[in-house]
Design a binder for these strands. Structure first.
Length: 396
RNA sequence: GCAUGGGUGGUCGAGCGGUCAAUGGCAUCGGGCUGUAAACCCGACGGAUUAAUUUCCUACGUAGGUUCAAAUCCUACCCCAUGCA
């Protein structure tokens, strides 16, 4: 019995809509997963995520929680779900991305990666085995293999070396993962009824690398499938390559990924990126943009982006996005949000983050609906053309 | 009234004869953020003009003066702070 169940409910071209069942929640796809690196989606209470936003799954990060508060503390407190009170699905990234983003602070070897903690400079070691152990202590529902994410513009030789290391690490990740499951060390274990269709164990997703090189993407994909995972991710995109390269790689890779498992494009992206990737066959996304940009004054709207810091909003009584049904848009004006931001009030960050997540999640709902109706093609065109109205959006 | 210290660009505050349109903080304006070292980072910030790190104008309380040259030195005045009457 598998740890997750995946059923396609409808397709439109390469686009798919379906239901992913984890041991903790049902997730309709395509899905956007808010990023909650340090056991919190920055600036947004779980109450909002559960109720109004209705997020079914969020991320956590192995590297950050490893450094603080530490996996043993979280294990002793009953796992990340219990610790944080987030009871829906959790996906934990393996720390692989930090191999890339903290490249100045780490040393990479075949065995693993030695990090110099960005908190206190102390040495920390992460490897496929350690990452799996931490993720089992966290008890997340979906575990990611420990990979190496090469830069977006990596050349062929560099990419090949990186991809092969990732493949060896994937094998090691799976081996340790299986052992941990057998030994019952997963702190998020759920005992399900005997008629359940899933196992109650953690799920493990593999990651396809290969930067912008299609032949290497193919090689990475084949090796990943050969090992066998509960879901498959495309990693190593939106890390500095050109947008066209990203779309090309997704267009090439996604349709070749197993159709009976969810496809996850890691770290992407803008609303436009999501639509384009869904169009090319992707089911799952995560990205810091709605929360990070929200914290720094950037709002995503159905008419494109706007920057709440701009003086032109000082007396604008309109909501961030007149078409948005979220509670922030129902109540607060751009003028007020701008004032909060300018005054350095933390509520600005909270409210804009909330709106941005609402916009992302609502967009996904519309996407799913349009795929079910076989109208995703039209939806995509309309959605993308509206995003171009950025300038007018500001003047609504 | 006397004594002392001080009056600098939106603001606070450095500068104390030339390299000063004047360091820096804040404010303001603009840009960026894609598996979060990020409530962060970058840029602009007297006016006009130029292809330009170009040229010009106006500025360091006010008015004079010294000097080749003054935000910087001198004189008078105005104002502020503190102390003494």
């Amino acid at each position: 019995m598998k740890p997750v169940d995946w059923k396609v409910l409808g397709t439109d071209g390469e686009a798919r809509t379906g239901i992913l069942r984890t041991r903790r929640s049902e997730i309709e796809t395509p899905v956007f997963m808010p990023v909650g690196t340090q056991a919190t989606v920055k600036g947004v209470r779980f109450e909002w995520l559960e109720n109004e936003l209705d997020a079914r799954i969020i991320l956590g990060n192995t590297y950050h929680l490893f450094l603080r508060p530490g996996p043993e503390i979280i294990r002793n407190l009953g796992g990340l779900h219990k610790f944080s009170t987030w009871n829906r699905s959790l996906l934990t990234d393996s720390g692989g991305f930090q191999v890339f983003s903290l490249s100045d602070l780490r040393k990479l070897t075949e065995d693993g990666v030695e990090f110099k903690s960005h908190l206190d400079g102390s040495k920390k070691f992460l490897s496929p085995e350690v990452s799996m152990e931490i993720q089992s202590a966290l008890g997340s529902d979906i575990v990611m293999v420990f990979d190496e994410c090469a830069p977006g513009d990596a050349d062929i030789a560099q990419t090949k070396t990186s991809l092969e290391l990732t493949a060896r690490w994937a094998l090691r990740s799976k081996a340790r993962f299986e052992a941990l499951q057998t030994n019952g060390l997963d702190s998020g274990r759920v005992e399900l009824n005997s008629d359940a269709i899933i196992s109650g164990r953690q799920a493990l997703f593999g990651i396809v690398q290969g930067a912008g090189h299609k032949n290497l993407r193919r090689e990475s994909l084949e090796r990943t499938i050969e090992i066998g995972f509960d879901g498959y991710a495309i990693g190593g995109l939106s890390v500095g390559e050109e947008k066209r390269v990203m779309y090309d790689v997704v267009e090439y890779t996604a349709p070749q990924m197993p159709s009976d498992a969810p496809r996850y494009l890691m770290g992407v992206g803008t609303p436009e990126d999501l639509i384009e990737a869904i169009y090319r066959g992707v089911d799952m996304f995560d990205c810091v943009m709605p929360t990070r940009n929200g914290r720094t004054g950037g709002a995503f709207t159905s008419n494109g982006k706007l920057n709440i810091r701009n003086a032109k909003f000082a007396e604008d009584s309109a909501p961030l996005d007149p078409e948005c049904p979220c509670s922030v848009c129902a109540r607060y004006s751009r003028a007020y949000l701008r004032h909060l931001y300018q005054a350095g009030e933390m509520l600005a960050a909270t409210l804009i983050s909330h709106h941005n997540l609402a916009f992302y999640l609502d967009t996904m709902r519309q996407v799913r609906q349009s795929i079910k109706l076989g109208e995703f093609g039209q939806f995509r065109k309309k959605f993308l053309s509206k995003l171009q109205n950025e300038d007018e959006a500001a003047d609504v």
